[in-house]
Write a protein that binds this DNA or RNA. Sequence first.
DNA 1: ATGTTTACTTTACACCGTGTAAAGTTGACA
DNA 2: TGTCAACTTTACACGGTGTAAAGTAAACAT
Lengths: 197, 197
Amino acid sequence: MSSENQNSRSKILKTTCQLLEAGDGNKVRMSDIAKASGISRQAVYLHFPSRSELLIAAARYIDETENIDLRLAKSRNSERGVDRLEAFIEAWANYIPSVYGVAKALMVMKEHDVEAKAAWDDRMRALRHGCQAAVNGLAKDRMLQSGMTKKEAVDLLMVVISIRNWEELTKEYGWSQKRYMSFIQRIARKAITEPSP
Amino acid sequence: MSSENQNSRSKILKTTCQLLEAGDGNKVRMSDIAKASGISRQAVYLHFPSRSELLIAAARYIDETENIDLRLAKSRNSERGVDRLEAFIEAWANYIPSVYGVAKALMVMKEHDVEAKAAWDDRMRALRHGCQAAVNGLAKDRMLQSGMTKKEAVDLLMVVISIRNWEELTKEYGWSQKRYMSFIQRIARKAITEPSP
DNA sequence: ATGTTTACTTTACACCGTGTAAAGTTGACA
DNA sequence: TGTCAACTTTACACGGTGTAAAGTAAACAT
């Protein structure tokens, strides 16, 4: 039933992502999304009750199409904790550019909107699981930096690989994705692992 | 002339800072500021043409009362580049808590408001000068990490000591200022300096 | 063929916060 | 007594989100 519904819904999600990705001016309003989707503004509200819920759905939509879960799962194959950390960061860093548009919109919105804040926190919790796993891998190898708790290592890793930092380095300071990746991997390693002999 | 004017003006600035500092809910409107200042909302507009200009003035006001210039100048006394980096970060890190409220409001606002964005960029340019000086000090001692340009080092330092990261570690993850300081100093050192023999 | 349902459109409006406009009040100072 | 400055009060425009409700057009069922 309602394949038309499905089509409209995913059309909205798709154009939302496109607009946010392109989003030079960053200001993507409900009316912009409607216009770009070829439907009325009210019709958008038939599919998504609010702007924040639309953004959340868009984030989920990207997760599915980009298959982030698979990517992160793959990063868990390395034997050594240090390699695993590197692979984890690589997977995450490659994922950032594809969510950036939507993530940015959510980041801005979470400052005012409770729902957006909750959605953001939820996604950060998921990322934290990945960081926790990476840190556990390091601890197993006794490669966690001495005098550092696991919690501290996870917190630091979260901060180092944050989207904000990616944004600043690439968007603000013009770093290439490649350069970003190698420097962040190195910093993360130096920040939380014990230098090997 | 107009000492009354001056009094009202600084009263507004003061309460603005207070509200933003306290700012649990973060939403500090012009009417909130007016009410807390004991004047009408319109009177606020007699002193500041817009919300963004008020925030900018508030930031300047804090700079003056906290004497940030002096603090940063002091950090330039160390002889060794590495010590100087450490002192610079210490001065900056101690400054963050006192501007955080206003800075946060500006950060949020800059996403929508051109003026706020310009003001923010201006402040970041000032901070960058400090970073540049610290990096120059390292380069002089040949302590800059091998294979790293000065620009890269400055960019990384900017990111590592960013207010966003401070916010995440202290506000989100509950780190104490002391712990923040020591970890960030260490990460900055490891990120951009050559490990000494 | 008729009615019902579904996916929309169109029009209109309430709400919130920013910012503008203008007329009125109050006190100081000359 | 007049005028200037700092303010108050009231009112309103604007942009963006979200609600409400009546209308339309095609699909489907009986």
